[in-house]
Lab assay of single mutants.
Amino acid sequence: ESETFDVELTKNVQGLGITIAGYIGDKKLEPSGIFVKSITKSSAVEHDGRIQIGDQIIAVDGTNLQGFTNQQAVEVLRHTGQTVLLTLMRRG
């Protein structure tokens, strides 16, 4: 069981404050995608409180990250504006 949710964030001096990890899993058993690996102290993400380590980032400002490499996803996140809309999925 999984839930998908949107989080809109405004960057602070730390930026968004997440590091991400790309993961290619076994299609049947484990998900592939871009996941939140860590959250920086005092960052926008930590202050917001809704995003957790292990959440999958589905889209950034409407750009679907399906099939993106870790590096491609980093580039998408790097080129966002001051306000960012993240679409995430959390597995229950």
Rank of each mutant, 00 (worst) to 15 (best):
R50S: 07
D6R: 11
T10R: 14
V7W: 03
T83E: 08
V60A: 03
G49Q: 06
V84L: 06
H79L: 06
G25S: 13
R78G: 11
S2V: 10
T19Q: 14
K11F: 01
H79G: 15
A73V: 09
D26I: 08
F35K: 04
N64V: 09
T83M: 05
G67Q: 07
I18V: 09
L9I: 15
R78Q: 11
K41W: 03
K28E: 14
F35G: 03
H79M: 12
Q66K: 08
I20E: 04
A59H: 04
A21K: 11
G25Q: 11
K28Y: 11
T83V: 09
V60G: 00
F5A: 05
G15A: 07
G22K: 10
I53N: 04
S42E: 15
T69L: 00
L65F: 08
Y23A: 15
E1P: 06
L16D: 02
I18T: 03
G62A: 03
L16H: 04
G62Y: 03
Q82G: 11
E1T: 12
G92Q: 13
T83G: 03
L86Y: 00
F68S: 08
G54A: 03
T87K: 14
A21I: 06
Q66N: 09
I51P: 01
V84T: 10
Q56R: 10
D48P: 04
F35T: 07
N12L: 04
I18P: 03
K37H: 08
V13A: 15
V76E: 05
G62M: 00
S43T: 08
L16N: 03
F68T: 07
E46S: 11
Q56I: 06
I51N: 03
K27Q: 13
I53M: 06
D61C: 02
S38C: 09
S38E: 13
Q56L: 04
G49I: 02
G81Q: 07
K11D: 06
L77N: 02
N12P: 12
T10H: 13
T40N: 12
F5W: 07
V74E: 15
L9D: 00
G17D: 01
S38Y: 07
S2G: 12
G54M: 05
Q52W: 06
F35S: 04
Q71D: 11
V84H: 02
I58D: 04
D6T: 15
E8R: 13
Q82P: 14
K28F: 10
L86E: 01
A44H: 04
A59W: 03
I53R: 07
G92K: 12
V13F: 11
